[in-house]
């Protein structure tokens, strides 16, 4: 299976996928850490993929969405953005409603 197919399958099989550097418990980059904190504060369950573990995925996911940086968030197979856009949506109180509209359960403080 090509990296592209692997990514396509991952984001189809999981409602919320965060491609990041490191893991939610041990993020290895400030921007990835911001993305994890935002999702955690909204109480969103998500699958994380540590791109540091697989250089092909690290490069492949950038080409997949024509987005040159990590982290990358996908919801219901759709690319949502990197940490800047997540932070902007979160601060504008748009991220919660966006996720709810996509049928994603948010349990803040759960």
């Amino acid at each position: 299976m090509s990296v592209r197919d692997q990514i396509a399958k991952e984001i189809a099989d999981n409602d919320v996928v965060l491609y990041m550097k490191g893991t939610p418990v041990f993020p290895q980059c400030g921007f990835s850490s911001v993305a994890v904190q935002i999702l955690s504060s909204l109480g969103v369950k998500f699958k994380s993929v540590d791109v540091l573990k697989d250089p092909e995925v690290r490069q492949g996911v950038k080409e997949f969405s024509n987005w040159p940086t990590i982290p990358q968030l996908y919801v219901k197979g759709e690319f949502v953005g990197g940490s800047d856009i997540l932070r902007e949506m979160y601060e504008a109180d748009e991220l919660g409603p966006f996720l709810a509209e996509k049928g994603i359960v948010c349990q803040p403080g759960a």
Binding site: F31, N66, P68, G81, D84, I85, E88
Partner: peptide, 27 residues
Amino acid sequence: TRVQQHQMVYDALKGRMGGVLHALSLQ
């Protein structure tokens, strides 16, 4: 959209984003 706006900026940087330029927080 925000994604499109940021992609336009990344295109303007002609491939430097994520390479020569490690981190550029955009607004």
